[in-house]
Simulated scan of single mutants.
Amino acid sequence: MATSALEKTLSQLQSTPPPSPQRISSLLTTAKKHLLHLSALLPSPTTPPPLLHLARQTLETGALLSIRLQDPDAFTRYFQQLLPFYELPSSSYQPADNGQRSKVTGLYLLLLLTRGDYAGFHTVLEGLEVEMKGGLEADRYIGYPVKLERWLMEGSYDRVWGATKKEGVPSEEFAVFSEVLINTIRGEIASCSEKAYPSLPIANAKNLLFLDSEGSVVDFAHIRGWVVKDGRIYFPLQQGEDVRNEKEILVASGQVIENTIGYARELETIV
């Protein structure tokens, strides 16, 4: 009876269209109660394979729905609960399970990137490399954060930005964290720009910061405390600097700004 109740709850969670956010939260709570009643929240040698499969499906569904609810902390808890299941021999599961594991793990790697937790990112990656014997980039879901991390280290923000567009995202769930990552990158570029330039034309800043319009640039500038005047943005850290120092400031700017400005110029040429 308890197994049937869990199957029914899982079916409701996986329905199309999905339930409302409030209903999802309620159903996830019910599903966890069923797992507790079945002693299936943690796998054990005595857990029947069908129940093992059902428990893992339930936790993976909870993880993916937590992202749709934009609750990264809940997603992290589900991922931690899934780790003991993922450590079991693959023979314990149906072949279709591997795809969900790949998606959930890839999402966790992307979440670590958005938080700047590169140590945690590489710890998870090292375990995957041993298990999968290389070829991580060939995996649709795991390869996505792996490529993003490499481009971030190279300062190739234009590639990261391009990969977060709809056609470059592996699934709808990845789009949530991808947008967070772009906002993080935008903040890093803004910090570099403040140190590298006395001012910038708004049109250049739009491409540099990967914003959709000049109005968005003005809004972003106000949030950062920048001064907008006569079609230019003036960075507070550089106000009052002699114009003769501008060349020295540009030369001192980092490779990240050089790469990104180059990309902005390419966009202007295309337009």
Results as ranks from 00 to 15, higher is better:
residue 19 P to N: 01
residue 20 S to I: 02
residue 25 S to C: 05
residue 26 S to A: 11
residue 27 L to E: 03
residue 32 K to I: 09
residue 40 A to M: 12
residue 46 T to Q: 13
residue 53 H to S: 15
residue 53 H to V: 15
residue 55 A to G: 08
residue 55 A to V: 08
residue 59 L to V: 07
residue 60 E to Y: 01
residue 62 G to R: 01
residue 65 L to C: 01
residue 68 R to L: 04
residue 69 L to Q: 08
residue 79 F to Q: 05
residue 80 Q to S: 13
residue 87 E to I: 02
residue 98 N to H: 08
residue 102 S to Y: 00
residue 103 K to N: 02
residue 108 Y to E: 06
residue 110 L to E: 14
residue 115 R to Q: 14
residue 116 G to F: 05
residue 127 G to D: 05
residue 136 L to M: 04
residue 144 Y to L: 11
residue 144 Y to D: 05
residue 149 E to A: 15
residue 154 E to L: 09
residue 156 S to G: 08
residue 159 R to N: 10
residue 160 V to H: 04
residue 164 T to N: 07
residue 169 V to S: 12
residue 173 E to V: 09
residue 176 V to P: 05
residue 177 F to H: 04
residue 177 F to I: 04
residue 178 S to A: 14
residue 179 E to S: 14
residue 182 I to V: 12
residue 184 T to C: 10
residue 186 R to I: 01
residue 189 I to N: 00
residue 193 S to A: 15
residue 194 E to D: 09
residue 198 P to G: 13
residue 207 N to V: 10
residue 207 N to C: 12
residue 207 N to E: 15
residue 208 L to V: 05
residue 211 L to S: 06
residue 212 D to G: 14
residue 214 E to R: 13
residue 214 E to Y: 10
residue 219 D to W: 12
residue 226 W to N: 07
residue 228 V to Y: 02
residue 228 V to W: 02
residue 230 D to Q: 14
residue 236 P to T: 07
residue 242 D to M: 00
residue 246 E to H: 12
residue 255 Q to Y: 10
residue 259 N to S: 15
residue 262 G to K: 13
residue 267 L to C: 11
